[in-house]
């Protein structure tokens, strides 16, 4: 058998074999390779290359090596799922690099990280000042996860003490000018309603690229013709503004009237209305 034919047969066979063996090892995300994964993959690759290039004279020996290097990791992964101790050995444990805002030098040393490495990893997380960090962990994959100090964390509605409306998922009722009946029905609406709303917005149905309905039945549109400006639904804002106006009116009447009884009534109304505004405001603003 000539040399080239030998290599051709070996390569073809190994190609199929490695494909099968790698599948056997299971699906692990390549972006989350641990050091151990990396070693296994390289050994498999090199062994397969060596066998297929006929660098290994003993074919059976080469195949045994390949089998061991794929079956053992596969076995260990299964064990790792079952036992924490195995997991810690092969995947490594996370190391705490910064705790309570202080860099732990010995942990850094253990992880073989230079201070520059740490700073550059922090910068990748958009942290340019290490003093902003409360807690940082080196993950087994080599990435650094960062928890910022409370006062440096981005403001959320909760920390700002703002009451926000409950967000419910909008339903997509039109795509590419085609009306989707199922989401419409899920919202308790129908085609007739949609046509009325489109007419209100002054838009032809065939011109609509995407149409979504939010939980209070407001229609949001995107058109094929981008030159046309679609009016944004204003009902919620309008209701909110009208409520505020009515409340102000009541206060004005309370000031204007001479009768104490009417004055009291207007004041009560104004109070109730401002309570309503406080309660309902988060729902009407988005």
């Amino acid at each position: 058998m000539p040399e080239w034919l030998n290599i051709l047969i070996r390569s073809t066979g190994l190609f199929a074999l490695t494909l099968f063996l790698v599948r056997l090892m299971g699906k692990r995300q390549t972006s989350r390779l641990t050091f151990f994964d990396l070693v296994t993959v390289i050994v498999i690759g090199v062994t397969a290359a060596a066998i297929s290039l006929n660098l290994v004279q003993n074919l059976a020996g080469g195949l045994i090596a390949l089998a061991v290097w794929t079956l053992f990791p596969a076995l260990i992964y299964v064990l790792a799922i079952k036992y924490k101790a195995v997991r810690d050995i092969i995947q490594g444990r996370e190391a705490i690099l910064i705790n309570h805002g202080k860099v732990l030098e010995d942990k850094l040393m253990e992880a073989r990280m230079t201070p520059e490495d740490l700073l550059s990893q922090l910068r990748k997380k958009n942290v340019f000042n290490f003093a902003d960090v409360e807690f940082a962990v080196l993950e087994p994959t080599g990435e650094v996860s960062v928890l910022l100090k409370k006062d440096k964390q981005p403001a959320t509605a909760k920390t700002l003490n703002i009451d926000v409306g409950r967000e419910s998922v909008p339903q997509t009722v039109m795509l590419d000018g085609i009306i989707m009946d199922e989401p419409l029905a899920a919202m308790g609406l129908n085609r007739k309603w949609l046509h009325t709303e489109l007419e209100k917005a002054g838009v032809a149905p065939e011109n609509v690229f995407i149409a979504q309905v939010d939980s209070t039945g407001q229609l949001y549109l995107d058109l094929f013709d981008d030159a046309i400006q679609v009016p944004k639904p204003k009902t919620k804002d309008l209701v909110f503004a009208t409520l505020k106006k009515c409340q102000a009116d009541c206060e004005l009447y309370a000031l204007g009237t001479q009768q104490p009884e009417a004055k009291k009534m207007y004041e009560r109304c104004s109070g109730v209305l401002s309570e309503i505004i406080g309660e309902i405001g988060p729902l009407l603003k988005r």
Binding site: R166, L189, S215, T216, G217, L238, V239, T242, K245, L283
Partner: peptide
């Protein structure tokens, strides 16, 4: 003012009837 309030009430009731979220 009375007419405005009536309008607001009607709109809120429409919203309430369409709204899926029980709390809202």
């Amino acid at each position: 003012t009375l007419a405005s309030l009536k309008g607001v009430r009607a709109t809120l009731e429409t919203f309430a009837s369409i709204e899926e979220n029980r709390e809202a």
